[in-house]
Each structure stands twice: as structure tokens, then as C-alpha cells.
Design a protein around this nucleic acid. Structure first.
Lengths: 156, 156
DNA sequence: CACTCACTGGGCACTATGCCCACCAAAAAC
DNA sequence: GTTTTTGGTGGGCATAGTGCCCAGTGAGTG
């Protein structure tokens, strides 16, 4: 576990220009193609790189509203709630957490009005005691990984 | 704006097996290669597909702890706080929200102990009045988009 | 009816891929 | 101090995919 500077440069390069292939990457990094191939294989079998799936923008799909909901769960109902929420397409991710709530989930909706429908879908379930929702207004830092990769490479 | 069933099948296919190319995709979908190419181009220029960057697992980088922090900001300090947080690599994303807090950010750390360091980094800034942190224990629903894509295709 | 638009199926040159190999240097093991 | 791994280099190879072109067709629209 751990990553060196070349790994980091490779990941950053792929993050910035995903369309380039192994050949082009080897040229940009100034190393042999075989090296890039070996690094990529290792990073993927390591699990550092999970895959290269398409990044889909919910807004472009017609779901421009994002919200985070903190849920409080009735004791022992965790599994049922998980199953229920995983069946709701508008629930993009779900975490169980410490702290005031028991779960935190990310929601999307077609509009603020539609968010009401989604929230009703989410909390309209027996195991959920209470929900508090925060609507996202701006997203000054979109989900990113590059700075972390660079830091992980720097002090490893 | 909107997506049809073929678009959805293409996105789902790419999400499940990102390594396949246009050729293979056209075979799987039973359409001509040119069609897949045209659809892909359209989805990308639409912004529906933002890109195909590598999905990096912070845990595999040595950051297995994830947390969400709700921040309360001093009036008029929003911009400064944004700039400060975007300079912290462990801040993976940042949103401004309605509700009790003013901002919500996703953090990662090397350990629970290290999380203390990260939180100090984050809140050790003038504009931040208060922070409450929820540590993620489990992630029953990892960030996903497929169900939403399928729904968007179904009722469009 | 004419027109546009998306899809088809084919062809083309070019390039990348996956997979070999021998060779080399630095680090690790003995 | 010598031997063995390990990781990188640079090259070659057949296969396959890419980007890009075209003419033809069928559906939907004005």
C-alpha cells in the first residue's frame, strides 16, 4: 500500500485527460510503455484505481437539485432501511455515521418541489424516526481526488 | 435534455464494463458502431457524461477514514472559507447548503487519530464558527448513478 | 410530397493494444 | 561481497480498434 511519484503523475494525467491511452501516457510521462502498463495493472489490482466508469452528471439527466439528508433510525431497523433506500434511484449514496444522526444520504431531485416527493419516498418507511435535510446551493469543491493523490505520493 | 433507452443502456454498459471500446459496445447493444460513436459524442457534449476519469479509492491510498463535517460560517467569510478548504487535500468535496449548517464537506484521514489533525486543519480558520463531524462507519450504498440513469430513461 | 435526421453497413489508413523478448541497474537477500 | 529479485527499458509482432469517410434506408415532420 502506498504510491510513488510516478503512480501519482500517472493518476493525475489520467484524471486530466482520460481519453489518452497507455501509449500516449508513456510519452507524456517520459517512461516506457511497458512501465505504464505495469503500473496501471498494479494500481488496478491494488484497488487504488477502481475503474474508469463514465462520470454522469445528474443535473444533465434532469436532476439539478442535490440534498443531503440526515436520518435517525429506529433501533434494529438498520438493515431494512438500507434495503429500502438502495431501492430508491434518487438516493445516490448512503452512509452510516456516528453523531446526531444514524445515516447520511445524498439525494437528487428534478426540482425543489420534486425533492419533496423524494424525501417522502425516503422517509416514508417505518424504520425512520426523523430526517433533516440540507439542500445544496453551491458546490465550490466538486468531488476531487487529485490533491489527495499528490499528497499521498509526496509523503510516502 | 433527456435520455432515451439506448443512451441508458450504453451508459449502464460502460459503467459495468468500462474497459470495452466503441466496437465492443456496439456489438453488445446490437447497433452499428457509428451509432454508438454518435451517441457517445452527444452524451459528452451534452455534459451527461463528464468524462472517464479513474475512480480512485482513498482507502487504498492510505486514507480509510471518511467523515462529513457541517460547518457554520461567520457572515461574509464564505469566499475565504472556500479558498481555505479547497487548499486542504483531505477535503474531497464541499457544498454550501441550507439548513442548520452553512457548509457540508467530505473529509478523509489516515486514521481516527489523524482525523483530529484534519479537522484542526479545516476548522483552524477564522471564518469558521462551529463544526460538527460525523464519522462514516459503513457505506451501504456507494456513490452510484445507474438506477438514476435507468429511471431517467424510463420516464422521459 | 419533400425534407431532415438517425441509424446502417461497409471501407479505409492509421494506431494502439496485448504480449512477447533480451538486457540492464539498483535494491534486497544471503 | 556476491547472488537473486525486482522494476524499468526498448524493441518487435500479429491482432484489433479507432477515427473518419461514404451511400443507402426508414421514420417522422412540415
Amino acid at each position: 500500500m502506498g504510491i510513488d511519484a510516478l503512480d501519482a503523475r500517472l493518476i493525475v494525467l489520467l484524471a486530466r485527460e482520460p481519453r489518452i491511452g497507455v501509449q500516449e501516457a508513456s510519452r507524456r510521462l517520459g517512461v516506457a510503455r511497458g512501465t505504464v502498463q505495469a503500473r496501471l495493472d498494479r494500481l488496478q489490482s491494488n484497488g487504488v484505481i477502481r475503474g474508469f466508469g463514465p462520470e454522469v452528471d445528474p443535473a444533465a439527466l434532469g436532476y439539478p437539485v442535490t440534498a443531503f439528508a440526515t436520518l435517525e433510525i429506529k433501533q434494529g431497523q438498520g438493515a431494512d432501511v438500507r434495503a429500502h433506500l438502495s431501492g430508491v434511484p434518487e438516493v445516490l449514496e448512503l452512509h452510516t455515521t456516528t453523531g446526531h444522526g444514524d445515516m447520511l444520504c445524498r439525494l437528487v431531485a428534478r426540482s425543489n418541489a420534486d425533492l419533496q416527493r423524494v424525501i417522502d419516498l425516503v422517509v416514508g418507511f417505518d424504520g425512520i424516526v426523523r430526517a433533516s435535510t440540507a439542500i445544496v446551493m453551491e458546490n465550490p469543491v466538486p468531488l476531487r481526488i487529485i490533491p489527495l493523490v499528490e499528497q499521498a505520493a509526496g509523503d510516502s
